[in-house]
Design a protein around this nucleic acid. Structure first.
Lengths: 204, 204
DNA sequence: ATATAAATTGACCGGGTGGTCAAATTAAGC
DNA sequence: GCTTAATTTGACCACCCGGTCAATTTATAT
């Protein structure tokens, strides 16, 4: 049993929260173990006892963030399995918005990961996320093709790419406007409708 | 006249190249003035004489990269002013590919900028780039609408957003596969065709 | 209460950072 | 050739980094 897991839950939570805060605020290189230690109210030696290095602490947080994301994605996929493509898309976007509203700091870490490859294990992590997204969106598209909702001659790889580009970019921008506390430039209903129409009909 | 401009062109070039190399390799915070000084073969005091701070040196490089990008964009826009939407799109993608092939390090700085806001002046720079992209792509779309090539009821803001998402993401991924020296997973002709078809027809 | 084991601490290490400035070098004017 | 001005240099500063480990505190068992 790893030393960290032996800790009282409350202390674990303090450490995890402090780490999330720091890694959300700064990228991996710039984030500071000293700051985390201060925020968590523990000593430096302890932190390095629980996690043997900065990299392994980051990994812990990363796994945690990814687990949250996956849970949201799987939930919405399963709940919408029988619905038509455009409705599914709308629900997926909704679910994404819900995630970044409820976990803004995890979202920040996640977006930094997929857009900057911000991680000590860049290559591995990026290809992991890539294939996760491919499987997920690929499945959604395949379902729709099987039901003759989409053009049967669609290039699936490209379709996944376009979906991924627009969805992630939309959620990233939505997340940023939320964090800046600006008047939200995204009317949710309008954009969800716009996105699904764009996918099905294009600009014509 | 600023001290840097008084330098012989050759020396200026050495400094600029060293800076581009360093800022392409590492993000703003992680990039090192010491490394730049070494690469350029000048002393630290000199560099801080030419540029009063790291931030102002970065700004110089940023302006330079942005100028290059703008030149490419304007050229292809003007040269394709009379062509139909889909052909224009194809030429714009081509031009983007040409840019990242000829200036891979500037491209890297540019992508880090738009995807991570990697700059000492985040907010200012991001909104600058945003409005640049809005004007540029907005113009292309307007042209096409004026010629009845696109649905007249298109929401222009959204259309620009979708264009921007897919184009930038495509070029970013293309750039990354180039840098990794992998077998290029992007067959250029196939993807250019796929992108333009996606914009005009969607997935149906 | 005491001896032992486990957990926690923080001073300390080598190294890197952006930035400074007195001193040394080079260029210019006469 | 000599003097003055402009340029260049790199040792140095205060600060921060990830990581270590002897010493101290806390918990456990008898």
């Amino acid at each position: 049993m790893k030393p960290f897991e032996k800790l009282p839950i409350e202390k674990q939570a303090r450490i995890v929260n402090a780490s999330i805060l720091e890694f959300a605020e700064k990228d991996y290189e710039t984030a500071s173990m000293n700051k985390i230690v201060d925020k968590a109210g523990i000593s430096k030696g302890s932190l390095f006892n629980y996690f043997k290095s900065k990299s392994s602490l980051y990994n812990h947080i990363y796994q945690l963030a990814l687990g949250e994301v996956k849970a949201y994605l799987q939930k919405v996929r399963d709940e919408t399995a029988e619905l038509p493509f455009d409705v599914r898309m709308a629900k997926i976007v909704d679910s994404g918005i819900q995630f970044i509203t409820q976990h803004p700091r995890l979202a920040r870490i996640y977006f930094r990961l997929i857009y900057s490859g911000d991680s000590p294990h860049r290559k591995k992590v990026i290809s992991e996320l890539q294939s996760m997204s491919d499987k997920y969106l690929g499945g959604i598209i395949q379902d729709a093709m099987d039901r003759n909702e989409l053009n049967a001659q669609l290039d699936k790889t490209q379709a996944v790419f376009f979906l991924d580009s627009v969805l992630n970019r939309f959620l990233k921008d939505y997340h940023e406007t939320l964090e800046l506390g600006e008047n939200n430039r995204f009317n949710k209903e309008k954009w969800v409708k716009g996105i699904t129409e764009f996918f099905t009909k294009g600009f014509k």
